[in-house]
Design a protein around this nucleic acid. Structure first.
Lengths: 237, 237
DNA sequence: TTTGAATCGTTTCTCGATATTTTTCTTGTG
DNA sequence: CACAAGAAAAATATCGAGAAACGATTCAAA
């Protein structure tokens, strides 16, 4: 979904734009539940059963599910209702490679066109991410890290003028995030996540597009490799 | 009438899969009306007024409009209803460049991976397009040409394994089609459309990826240049 | 004349009820 | 016992009416 352009400080964590309608609220709630794995891949979504959980009527919930269909988080088969979209390693590989292509292209544009304000925003986003990464080792700050990681990636390509590229990337990012949540995420500890981000940040600030895109590609692909799906959730159909 | 999943030749013109629900029917009808310019950019879509035109209830039409939002053919602002998405030269340029990137990448994969069956399908699609181009000069065969042109482009990249790339391309193709319809389309006569397609076809069959992607990029960009928006419909908002 | 507040008509958004389809269960038959 | 046909149950898709929000207009005050 393409939204109207938000006011100035685009990448503030606070400004998330309240949902204005019940459809929107249900859409977001459902999306979170799917991305964060509380609804399993392939699970049937019976409108009559779950409309009470979200406190909306049938038609409203239906519309929210329709919207999720466009994000490929929900699939609908003709007159047989809705299901949570299935997952597969094949799909994950596709998401990853498509994302590498789009995000590297966007990064190149961003590096070429970014001005002082972009550098400042990037520095700020990197700083916040760094703090979150320090905290990540300790307690339960995963959500905050997830948010700041997303914003860092968004700011990296913020100076790219292509709205369509950004739109597609946002869809793919949500997809990838879902796979990350579904995976057992044990292997993450072994990665030097912060070093990857730091090198990427340095290359971008130095306007070294070749190095930056190479690092970004590796970074995204490593995320893929750290995901090993639980066999139970790989059932395609 | 039970149809088993479509048999081999996927890109037949006849098999378009009937809409199974009213939402789907309304969605397609609306999409055609927007793409083919019968609904003007920026026009307000009042549910109460147009639900009779499509013979559906309010909630159903609403859901169809929501779906079009995801294709960026309709925009919705909070509690202020729906509008036909605005157009701009800037947006068209973005669509074109994003499409060039994705479609060239897909073509490269397709050329690398396509087998005999792909060559056969491509030959057939090119042949049908050629016939349609011969007829185009004469009478009112524009719709047929539009259809076969789309299929030719689809078959070109059919051997590319990335579902996501194809999905995004299909969205962009619809967008570009809309701009083509909105333009005054006078300059099209001057183009050697068939020569472009023929050269592209030859390069693909010869597995010359560099030439093919170069030609494809030029081809798509030329389409952009042949589009000059009527100033009246360029009002952004 | 401009600004601000209040009102009213219009439109959007939402829900419960209904008709239609799909799925499940039962029953009868070879 | 396997299988098919039919009936019952469940779920889906759809509609029309009602509640909430918006925008235009009016009117009053600065």
């Amino acid at each position: 979904m393409l939204h109207t352009s938000p006011p100035y400080p685009v990448h503030q964590e606070t400004q998330v734009a309240e949902p204005k309608t019940l459809v929107e609220a249900a859409y977001r709630s459902l999306r979170r539940n799917i991305i964060e794995g509380r609804l399993s891949p392939g699970e049937k979504l019976r409108i009559e059963h779950i409309k009470n959980d979200y406190g909306v009527g049938g038609a409203t919930l239906r519309e929210a599910l329709s919207l999720l269909t466009s994000d490929a988080l929900v699939v609908s088969q003709g007159q047989r209702g809705f299901r949570v979209a299935p997952v597969s390693l094949e799909d994950l590989a596709d998401i990853t490679e498509t994302r590498v292509m789009l995000e590297c292209s966007a990064l190149r544009h961003s590096i070429a066109l970014g001005d002082d304000a972009w550098e400042a925003e990037l520095t700020a986003a990197f700083h916040r991410l760094t703090r979150a990464e320090e905290r990540l080792a300790e307690g339960n700050h995963r959500e905050q890290w997830e948010e700041r990681n997303r914003i860092f990636h968004e700011v990296l390509i913020a100076a790219c003028p292509s709205r369509w590229t950004k739109h597609f990337l946002s869809i793919l990012y949500h997809q990838a995030e879902r796979y990350r949540h579904l995976s057992l995420r044990r292997s993450e500890g072994t990665r030097r996540l912060h070093d990857e981000h730091a090198a990427l940040f340095e290359a971008a600030m130095a306007r070294d597009a070749d190095t930056a895109t190479r690092l970004l590609g590796e970074h995204i692909r490593l995320t893929l490799q750290s995901v090993r799906l639980d066999n139970a959730s790989t059932a395609s159909h």
